[in-house]
Amino acid sequence: MKIAVCIKRVPEMDVRFKIAPSGTSVDETGLKWDMSDFDGYAVEAALQLTEKLGNGEVVVVTVGPDAAQETLRKALSMGVTRAVHLKVDAIPFDNFAIARALATELQGGGYDLILFGKMSIDSSNGAVGPITAELLNLPCVAAASKLEIANGKGTARRELEGAAELLEFPLPAVVSIDEGVARPRYPSLKGIMAAKKKPLEVKPAQLGDLRMTVSTMALPPDRPPGRILGEGVAAVPELVRLLQTEAKVL
């Protein structure tokens, strides 16, 4: 079983972002970076699948600047076999261009399964996985909350609004992973030491034209300052009055 997992280096989110002077990106000063949350679930799912089968190889691939190699090393320290860095100066917002770079790398790689996180936690498009599947002409399930592989076939579950659906598909396939599939393990000290010796190949990313760009980034307008109407049950009549007369939602 040969599995590729496409991952992304993203900033940690529990900060107050500032906009860079260019106005088209966030100010990276002082940000901490890590593997995108859902990509961590995908790496873990890939490791568990190969461990269960007792053989196989997990390869991580990323498109990013030099610093993205930290994220690849983290995956290697979790137990991934080798890593491929598709190098760019800055990650473009154009998800077709990223999918094209990944598909160029993955094409002909003999992968049984290509996993993604269901979306990156920063740009939140959820598009690179399915577009890559289209470019490779592979079956695809987006945002799987359960995934099982047996006898060359996959089964998955997807959460819908107030419902869910079960799917089956042949391999090779592309699956993007929702949380719930597998909680990512922490790298062990032994894993971290071993990761330093694992192969990490660097190549230029074949992005092609960029046809979707960020023209500005801005902080969302602050909500008008909230009002604490009062304490306890005594404040309920005033709340109901405001919901009727001011917010007009009752």
């Binding site: 939140s124 960020v214 023209s215």
Partner: peptide, 17 residues
């Protein structure tokens, strides 16, 4: 417009495709 970074930043996105 598209909320990014868990809604803490709003990106204005231009498509030429």
């Amino acid at each position: 417009t598209h909320p990014v970074n868990t809604g803490k930043v709003i990106a204005t996105v231009t498509l030429t495709a």
